[in-house]
């Protein structure tokens, strides 16, 4: 179950999207996320879905692979659907027991689901098509201006990159510890909230011990390889804008304009 979380895993195929500068993809994702909140009608959502579909097609990442990442938010989507379905006032379609389902409710449930799915797919597409190192390079360079404000941009970027690398490892480890404690009769599934919280101790203590051990090891390995912060560091793949990136910026701008126009005129 834990291995199903694909968010943050790079999918190595060559595609126009993969080759884009990470700063473009970061900006694009940011714009996409903001723009989807502009959508308030069928056309707005349609444009958002269409845009995403085109980008996914260009990225050559199999749709099935991206959809797997949605399992992680299934519960949230379910909650959203249920809440919107039953708690939106308006024209009643039918009711179940004391809860009424309204036309507006159905509409909102559908829209919210589309919005959430688009959000997650859009954001995970970025991580599928961008190596975490490139992504952190993008953050480091794209947000480099924040250094003037004493924001430790390099350190934050490095931390993110390391976190991304270790998430799958710690996930697998969680799975393993859970199994090991289950073999000792631990029960993670039944009982009330308090009992469940208590049952987590045999899982969390070893997990933290292990995470700290890994952190110490990693710090040592980084030091041994002359790491001393971002100062004077060079890059194997330094970021350079090309014509393709400019074109992408134009497309993103056009998409944003389109979403704004739809919001104003429809």
């Amino acid at each position: 179950m834990l291995r199903d979380i694909t968010l943050g895993q790079y999918y190595p195929v060559g595609s126009p999207i993969h080759r884009l500068d990470p700063r473009v993809k970061l900006m694009g994702t940011l714009v996409y996320i903001v723009a989807i909140f502009l959508a308030d009608g069928v056309w707005g959502y349609a444009l958002a879905v269409l845009f995403l579909a085109v980008v996914i097609a260009l990225s050559k990442v199999p749709v099935g692979h991206i959809l797997k990442g949605l399992k992680a938010i299934f519960i949230i989507v379910l909650f959203t659907v249920v809440f919107n379905l039953f708690l939106t006032p308006g024209e009643e379609l039918f009711h179940i027991w004391k809860l009424s389902v309204t036309k507006e409710g159905v509409q909102r449930a559908v829209f919210m689901t589309v919005r959430l799915v688009c959000l997650v797919m859009g954001a995970s597409l970025m991580t599928f098509t961008t190596t975490p190192t490139a992504l952190t390079d993008g953050i480091e360079k794209g947000l480099g201006f924040l250094k003037v404000l004493k924001v430790p941009v390099h350190e934050v970027a490095m931390m993110m990159s390391i976190a991304l690398r270790f998430i799958p490892i710690l996930m697998e480890e969680t799975d393993k510890i859970m199994k090991a404690q289950s073999a000792r009769g631990a029960d993670f599934d039944t009982g009330g909230l308090v009992k469940k919280a208590k049952a987590m101790v045999p899982l969390l203590v070893p997990l933290f011990v292990s995470a700290f051990r890994r952190a110490t090891d990693l710090a040592q390995a980084m030091e041994a390889r002359c790491y001393h912060g971002g100062k004077g560091r060079t890059k194997l793949h330094p970021l350079k804008y090309t014509g393709r990136d400019l074109l992408a910026y134009l497309v993103i701008a056009a998409y944003l304009a389109g979403m704004i126009l739809l919001k104003i005129f429809l």
Binding site: Y10, T133, S161, I169, R214, D217, R225, T234, K235, H237
Partner: peptide, 29 residues
């Protein structure tokens, strides 16, 4: 080179990890 293979690889792509050391030393691209 340390004991645990997982805990000494920093980057998420092989070649970028290999480059990590010389990058820190400021070796040109």
């Amino acid at each position: 080179v340390f004991q645990n293979p997982d805990n000494q690889i920093i980057a998420t792509v092989v070649e970028e990890d290999v480059a990590f050391g010389p990058e820190n030393m400021g070796v040109p691209t």
